[in-house]
Design a protein around this nucleic acid. Structure first.
Lengths: 235, 235
DNA sequence: ACCATTTGTGATGGTTCTGTGACACTATCT
DNA sequence: AGATAGTGTCACAGAACCATCACAAATGGT
C-alpha cells in the first residue's frame, strides 16, 4: 500500500485530504509542523509527500530542501496559499514535482496525486523489465542501460555529459533542476566552474534532439530557475 | 524440478519468497548467512541463487565472487536494501545477472525470476544444438566451447584474453562495459594494472576480426565509457 | 633452457568532448 | 520604452580520451 505523508498545520485541510486519500486506499501519515514533517519524511519512507509552504517551526522550503538532500526520488507536492509566481518558482527550484495553490478543488487535487503516482509507476515498470530501462516520450526513446537514444527510430549520438543530462531530466519529467543542482548531480559537488557551462550542454543536447530549436519539445526552460523535461509531450 | 537457493538473513523475506517460489513449483533451499549460503551454493547445484547483499559472517559480494569462481553459469539475483546502496554497475561488475532493491513487490520479483529462467532456457537451447554454443553475428561466428572463431568461414587465431573479451562482449550485444568492468570480469578483481591495458587488447582483437580498422563493425567504442559489441550488424 | 607467443606498459599522435568568453537575444520590471 | 538579468548561440583552445605501435617482461610448450 502506498504511503502519503501530509505536512500541513491547518488541521481542517489535513482531515479533508486524509479522507480522500484514504478513499483511494493510500495509507496517510500526518505531520503538523516542519520539524515533525522532516523527521517523518526521513524515517517513514513515504511514496509521496504533500508539503505546505507556510509551516510552524520550519519553513516548507527548508523541509523540501532537506528531504531532497536525502531522498532524491520521493515525489513532493507543494501547497501554497498565495498564487504568487515567486512561491511557484521557489517551489520548483527546490525540486518539488508539482504544486497546487490554495484554495484548490478536491477533484483537481486527486487528479494530480494520481498523475504523480502514474508517473512513478511508469518509471518503476520501465526499470523492472530486466535489462530494459527505457524512457519513452513522444518520438524519443532512451535506453538507459545501453546508453542509446533514438529519435523517430534513428539513433542519436550523444556525448557523455549530454546523455547524463538527458537521463536525469527525463527520469523526472516536470521537475525543474537549477544549474547548480545539475552541476552537483552530474559534474559532482567538487566542480568549480561556471553555471553557464550547463547552458552550453543543454544547447548542444537540444540541437541533437529538438526538431525545432525555437520551440523545444523535450528540454524546456524554467525561467529564472533552470531546466526541466516536458511532462506533457504532444502526440 | 528447478532448484532455487535463497541466501538471506531476514527470515520473513525468506518465508515470503519461499511461498511464491513454491507456487511456481520450484524447489527451495534456504541459507541464513554467507558461509552457509556459499557452502550450499557449491554443493546443491542450484539453478538460481537469490543473494542478499548484507549478510552475517560473509558479505554478499564475497559470496557472489566465490560462487562465480566455481560455477560460472549459475544465475545470481542480488537483493539490496536501497537503490542508493548499490550502483547497478557494481552489481553487474561482480557478475550478478540481475538485482532487485528492497522493498520490492512480489509481482516484480516473480517477473524477474521468470525472466532469468527464460534467459537460461534460451542459452540452454542454443547449447543443445549439437552441443555447440555458437554466437553468430554478420560474417563472424564464435564457437564458445571449442574456443574457435570463424570470420567468413576462415579460422581466426585469438589469444586467450582476446577470446574472452570477444565472448563476453558478444554475449551481450549493445551493452557497454567500462574498462574497469572488463578488468574485473576477465582479469579478475585482484588485478592491479592500468585500465589502458584493455585498449591494447581491444586493439589487437580488432586487427584480427575487423575488416576495416577505421570503421569497426563488431567491437565498438562507447565514448567516455568503454566498449560494446555491435547489436545491429549490417546485412 | 630455448623459442614462440602472449601480455602489460610507455610513448605518441589523433579525435572527440568540454569549459569558457563574447555577443545576440528574450523575458521581466519600472 | 529602457534597463536589467537571464538565456541562446557560436567558435575555439585546452582537456580528456582513444588508437596505435614498439618493446620488454611474463608465459607456456618442447
Amino acid at each position: 500500500m502506498k504511503k502519503v505523508l501530509i505536512i500541513e498545520d491547518d488541521r481542517e485541510i489535513v482531515e479533508l485530504l486524509q479522507i480522500h486519500l484514504h478513499d483511494l486506499s493510500y495509507e496517510v501519515i500526518k505531520a503538523y509542523d516542519g520539524e515533525e514533517g522532516l523527521e517523518k519524511a526521513l524515517t517513514e519512507k513515504a511514496d509521496l509527500v504533500i508539503l505546505d509552504l507556510m509551516l510552524p517551526k520550519m519553513d516548507g522550503i527548508e523541509v523540501c530542501r532537506r528531504i531532497r538532500a536525502n531522498q532524491l526520488k520521493t515525489p513532493i507536492m507543494m501547497l501554497t496559499a498565495r498564487s504568487e509566481e515567486i512561491d511557484r518558482v521557489l517551489g520548483l527550484e527546490m525540486g518539488a514535482d508539482d504544486y497546487i495553490t490554495k484554495p484548490f478543488s478536491i477533484r483537481e487535487f486527486i487528479a494530480r496525486v494520481k498523475a504523480i503516482f502514474r508517473r512513478a509507476q511508469m518509471i518503476e515498470e520501465s526499470l523492472s523489465e530486466e535489462g530494459k530501462a527505457v524512457i519513452r516520450s513522444g518520438e524519443l526513446s532512451i535506453e538507459v542501460e545501453k546508453r542509446k537514444v533514438l529519435l523517430k527510430g534513428v539513433k542519436v549520438e550523444l556525448s557523455p555529459k549530454e546523455f547524463e543530462l538527458l537521463v536525469l531530466l527525463a527520469m523526472h519529467p516536470g521537475r525543474s533542476y537549477s544549474r547548480g543542482q545539475l552541476l552537483n548531480l552530474i559534474w559532482g559537488y567538487d566542480f568549480d566552474g561556471y553555471e553557464h557551462t550547463v547552458n552550453s550542454h543543454i544547447n548542444r543536447l537540444r540541437t541533437k534532439i529538438e526538431p525545432d530549436m525555437n520551440n523545444p519539445q523535450y528540454i524546456l526552460t524554467t525561467w529564472g530557475v533552470g531546466y526541466r523535461f516536458n511532462e506533457e509531450i504532444p502526440g
